[in-house]
Amino acid sequence: MVLDIIFLMLISSTSHVSANSTTVLPAAAAACSNGECQLRDECSTDRDCAAGLYCLSCPLEFRGSRCVRSTISDPFKLLNNSLPFNKYAFLTTHNSFAIRGEPSHTGVPRFTPANQEDTVTQQLNHGVRALMLDTYEFKDGIWLCHSFKGKCHDFTAFEPAMDTLKEIKAFMSANPSEILTLILEDHVEAPYELSRLFRSSGLDKYWFPVSKMPRDGQDWPLVKDMVANNQRLIVFTSDRSKQETERIAYQWNFMVETQCECFLFSCCFHLWIGL
């Protein structure tokens, strides 16, 4: 299950976008069970819900438990893959690595919020096509941590970044027509360690080069061409300097973020727009 999600859309021209959305849950339907419950019907177990749905409890959004979707429509299959990459919107998870129930890899109990219930592999299989990862230098390597003040601690660490990159590589190898985007909150200060990590993981074979990323209102390449060239991994960093030194795209050269209000542990939706 995805707990904390955003939508990512890369577009070619500079524009201002504002959006307001309101979700109104209908009145509870009559009692149902045995796979007969439909979207947003009240439920007791996953078995109550129809195919493609499962039973979710989210106290801050609605009372009790309701049937919700377990997968999304793949926009690249829905619209075909002949359009520029920036013409598609796709699902992104926030703190994709911060998984509830993930065992401690440091021997110290973790004391930091979790944002997801699915593993990274499950997120990708459920239709997520962009992951937000927080990279830190920790224990003589690069780890994914949900931390603060630029430092990772035993109680905020989730796992070595290589473990997650291996999951991503396995998915990309098994799905040769899929394009993934990684958005890094980058706290790695050691020169070239981040690019070395990607080379060691084998993901560099899918790398979409920053030199091909459009500027000044131009369209991105066609999805079918990105797939044909096997340049299917787009990586953005929050560290401006790495676009010049390591050729990793600085995110704010290519996207902006709309603002939204978030409340403690509630679901929050963003729209990201590339320039």
Rank of each mutant, 00 (worst) to 15 (best):
I6Q: 09
I6L: 09
I6C: 06
F7R: 00
M9G: 12
T22D: 10
P26I: 10
A27M: 13
C37V: 00
E42S: 11
S44Q: 14
R47G: 14
C49Y: 07
A50L: 02
C55D: 11
C55M: 07
S57C: 07
C58A: 14
P59K: 02
L60V: 11
R63N: 14
I72R: 00
I72M: 05
S73P: 04
L79N: 11
F90D: 11
L91C: 02
H94P: 03
S96E: 09
F97P: 03
A98K: 01
A98F: 02
P103Q: 08
P103D: 15
F111H: 06
P113W: 05
E117A: 06
D118C: 04
V120K: 01
H126R: 10
R129A: 04
R129V: 03
L131M: 05
L133I: 04
L133W: 02
Y136A: 00
E137M: 13
I142W: 09
F148M: 09
E159D: 14
D163T: 15
T164N: 07
T164Y: 06
K166A: 13
I168E: 05
N175V: 02
S177I: 13
L180M: 05
T181F: 09
A190D: 15
P191N: 11
L194Y: 04
L194V: 06
G202H: 02
W207I: 00
F208P: 02
D219N: 13
D219E: 14
W220M: 03
V223I: 12
M226G: 07
V227A: 07
N229S: 15
Q231E: 15
R232G: 04
V235R: 06
S238L: 03
S241T: 11
S241H: 10
Q243I: 12
Q243G: 09
E244I: 09
E244M: 10
E246N: 05
E257A: 14
E261H: 00
F263V: 13
F263K: 08
S266H: 12
H270T: 10
H270W: 08
H270Q: 13
L271S: 13
G274H: 08
L275E: 15
